[in-house]
């Protein structure tokens, strides 16, 4: 049926809609950019606006702070191990859910998303209870286990989505042409999954890198970078250093995420093999 008029009603956004959309975006972004501005302010003890002057001197000072370095190093180690664990567990779960029919299949996604969907404090206090009840000493590993648990779902979602998009017949085609399971995995599954795995890994890494709530309950006295920043905020001792560290965290998490998004987007482009 031909449309009644060439200009479809409601096709152009009204200016009210545009302004509200832009306002929401600015609300979402301006505070983050302020962090960058304050990393260069000459003022040491207050958040005066506008900054009385700009300087680069805090950046080398912040990087040279031992407590910051220790925290950064610990955070990187935790995030790396949590990511690897989440990659293995999330991929296995996604493959099982994609390939097979089994009882309770729907419950799997539900269970995996719980640590992220329930308030962080629940996972935190639950693990704290387990640690307390079984008198497990706080350690590097208690942090990793906590982080891995809520990172699994990120990998799972990414990998499962890719499985669903690439479809099962490719695996059958490979086996049909003489490749056994291992060859099929190497030549077909891995190349097609690689970018989804990478994207999932990056997201899991970012999630772990700035997690603070669960970590508070599983870390004992150890300070990851977010916890260090948090403690700095509670008792401001060295604001310029905190500002620079905050900027650093933004960069460390945001840049990989940009890359991850690119990966996911480019795999959409090369698809088209339906």
């Amino acid at each position: 049926m031909p449309s009644k008029s060439p200009a479809q009603p409601g096709e152009r956004a009204s200016w009210i809609l545009k302004i509200s959309a832009i306002a929401a975006l600015l609300f979402l972004h301006i505070p983050m950019w302020l962090i960058f501005l304050y990393s260069f302010t000459t003022e040491e003890s207050a958040y005066s606006f506008p900054p009385p002057g700009l300087t680069l001197k805090w950046i080398p000072q912040a990087i040279a702070t031992p407590a910051m370095q220790d925290a950064l190093f610990l955070t990187l180690k935790v995030a790396a191990l949590a990511t690897i664990t989440a990659l293995i567990l999330g991929t296995l779960a996604a493959a099982a859910v994609y390939r097979y029919e089994f009882f309770g299949k729907e419950a799997i996604s539900f269970m995996l998303v719980l640590p992220l969907a329930l308030p962080g404090i629940v996972t935190g206090i639950a693990m704290r209870s387990a640690i307390g009840l079984m008198t497990i000493p706080f350690s590097f590993w208690t942090i990793v286990i906590g982080h891995a648990t809520f990172c699994v779902v990120v990998v799972y979602n990414n990998v499962l989505a890719r499985f669903r998009r690439t479809g099962g017949t490719m695996v059958e085609a490979s086996m049909d042409l003489g490749a056994n399971s291992f060859q099929t995995f190497l030549h077909i599954i891995l190349p097609n999954m690689a970018s989804a795995l990478l994207a999932g890994a990056i997201l899991a890494f970012s999630l772990s890198f700035d997690e603070v709530i669960v970590t508070t309950f599983t870390a004992g006295n150890q300070q990851t970078l977010p916890i260090w920043i948090f403690s700095q905020m509670l008792k401001p001792r060295n604001r310029p250093i905190t500002n620079v560290t905050a900027m650093l965290v933004v960069l460390i998490t945001a840049i990989p995420i940009l890359i991850a998004q690119r990966i996911v987007a480019s795999s959409h482009d090369t698809e088209g093999n339906k």
Binding site: T166, G167, T169, M170, E172, A173, S174, M175, D176, L177, G178, A179, N180, I188, P191, N192, T270, E271, G272, N273, K274
Partner: peptide, 19 residues
């Protein structure tokens, strides 16, 4: 298993390897 049969298939959705 499929890889031990002297049989090959043309799939409905072709199942070409996109990479």
């Amino acid at each position: 298993p499929p890889y031990e049969r002297d049989v090959n298939t043309v799939f409905q959705d072709y199942a070409l390897f996109p990479h």
